[in-house]
Design a protein around this nucleic acid. Structure first.
Lengths: 363, 363
DNA sequence: CTGAAAGCGCTTACAG
DNA sequence: CTGAAAGCGCTTACAG
């Protein structure tokens, strides 16, 4: 097969210099318009594709960005990767991935590896509680606005507030919030946001899964039923993953969602729209966040200082069935405010529920 | 800051030629051992990091591989990305990601973009039913052994057979298999495998979600209850995502898992171990598949022809709670083989089930 | 065993 | 407006 055409081929074919070809193709405007068009045509005709390696070597820019996540296995990774890839590729950059497999030490190593590979800048989605050291290289951190010195983030607090407001508008007055661990700024923001939008008189409980698992072992039951008995009518998880755990555990115990209690999540992960009932959640504007991160990185690559102005990109509430209709009445009106009566549950015997009538599904 | 040291710096510092430094560092052995060690020490001392751009330009190899998935948003992407990244980075390669956002046309474009970016080879996980055109560039396809000419794949049929055997050993004799669409080799292999390991007399139904959704709209209920009534005791989904849909839909309808019916999935996606009950599933050996794909790619990069010998990497069955204990008896023994009696269900009234006793959870 | 030289494909002052 | 030349950092025949 014929070798990939390069600037020299074009130059020879046209009897001009490579410098002129280069200038014409890069559109720097030091070439007459007619010459430029002839060169462009020829380039197209030959199927010219610039060699990034050559360009990189002479400019010192690889036009590649690195994407490092604490854990590539995280279910949110696809959303990040897709958004960053799109933003980068729109800006003419490629995306190299790095994985630290959840290991904090490895996070820094992963970043360095990508830098050594020639990435012009790195987008980092750090592990909770991690500070990213200055590596003397353009970097954009996606985290929480509560993290000092970071570049971009969703407004997790406000996202939480949207959940809180939604739950509150549905007259929920006794809510359990489910988080993973308390040392995550993102999670704390979400929790804080939820609380902030709940009425003063609301009763709120906080559940950290990590603490439960430390005590009872990984994968243990969350023990949500007692909360229901104590009158909790809504579970607000700070991640769809935990919401899913709550939904299945509750359903399994015979609690109907949203009949008996509501469940909400965070992040609009893939299954949020697939499970029954579909999950009410709140979604980051990944596209926007990625754009800001990539733009900031490119700005830095071009010599400008890092900015921190992309903080607090609004999140979007997605209301689905799991947060369903309002409770039968505000907590204050309930008989004694005691445990929710078991008779509230709506799931009858299996065989009596065979028709799809009354189903709130799409079909 | 001081500029990144290069070969010339080392050479000057030692009063030798760059060629010697290069040879010493690349260990090609044309340098005396003592000289080599002196050079290596100096390189380390100066913190020398080879410029990939320079190397790429002179060798024509970027030491970067591209990873293209039909849809980066797919929940399996993290597993692929992690495995490929690890295999590639172990082999000294970086991984550039490409996304075709589910669009078939874009798949080819994504591949080409990565090639233009200088990727030495591409790993493709194609969309079902897609054939990857020869792009005159090293490529490794991860698909199903049923796909002609591909490079690596898990033995989906055998994975299915493991599920079938497991279900069969649990005395299930009436099984519904849930797939997405019939035009996927991977899914058909899985379905075929499941069937193959079921006893002759077993009753098997096949459910394609795409067909259901075409009829009833996206996100519609699968309508699993009628199957339960007809005596189906196990649902085998070809993906955990569909299994999850089945689990929640069944639970919501008051069907107990695994008390009343068993549910199994495929792929061991993140939530398989998190939901209640945890999901029995079968997992690809991603690490092995990635190794084979990457090794084959590197072999091709070095001039060898593509191989297709990595087909049928064994899958691993992961037994969890959802496939639970055996049915009360083989289908043939049931009263009339009619609908399963509603009294089989085990979820009592909420408030009677407050202790954790009898819980089959880890804690 | 070691070195001088050419070359990978591009960009960028610098002359003309 | 156009071109000759140098240089980015490396590798690789080819001499010595």
């Amino acid at each position: 097969m014929t070798p990939r055409p390069n600037l020299t081929h074009i130059a020879k074919a046209l009897g001009v210099s490579v410098a002129t070809v280069s200038n014409a193709l890069s559109g720097k405007g030091r070439v007459s318009e007619e010459m430029a068009r002839v060169i462009r045509d020829k380039a197209k005709e030959l199927g010219y594709i610039p060699s990034l390696a050559g360009r990189a070597l002479s400019t010192g820019r690889s036009h590649v960005l690195g994407l490092v996540l604490a854990d590539i296995g995280h279910p949110l990774f696809p959303q990040f990767a897709q958004a960053i890839e799109h933003a980068a590729s729109t800006a003419g950059y490629g995306v190299l991935i790095g994985d630290s497999r959840g290991d904090i030490q490895a996070q820094t190593r992963a970043i360095n590896r990508l830098v050594e590979r020639g990435a012009d800048g790195i987008v980092v989605v750090p592990r909770h509680g991690t500070r990213i050291a200055d590596i003397g290289h353009p970097i954009a951190v996606i985290d929480s606005p509560s993290t000092p010195g970071n570049t971009v983030s969703a407004d997790h607090w406000n996202g939480g507030a949207q959940i809180g407001a939604h739950l509150s508008s549905l007259d929920h007055r006794s809510i359990a919030i489910i988080g993973l661990h308390p040392d995550s700024n993102v999670q704390n923001d979400r929790v804080g946001g939820i609380k902030s939008a709940l009425p003063e008189e609301a009763h709120v409980e906080l559940l950290w899964i990590d603490e439960l698992e430390d005590k009872h072992g990984p994968g243990c039951e969350l023990g949500l039923l007692p909360f229901v008995e104590k009158g909790v009518t809504a579970f607000a998880a700070v991640s769809d993953l935990h919401a899913l755990r709550a939904v299945t555990e509750l359903q399994r115990r015979g609690v109907s969602i949203p009949g008996d209690v509501s469940v909400t999540g965070f992040d609009d992960l893939i299954w949020a729209g697939v499970i029954a009932p579909t999950l009410t959640t709140v979604r980051m504007n990944m596209a926007r966040i990625a754009e800001i991160a990539v733009a900031d990185l490119i700005r830095q690559v071009e010599g400008a200082p890092a900015q921190s102005d992309g903080q607090g990109v609004p999140m979007q509430l997605i209301i689905r069935q799991s947060s369903g209709p309002a409770p039968s009445g505000p907590a204050g009106n309930r008989s004694g405010g005691g445990p929710r009566p078991a008779t509230n549950k709506t799931n009858g015997p299996i065989l009596e529920n065979t028709t799809r009538e009354g189903s709130d599904q799409t079909c």
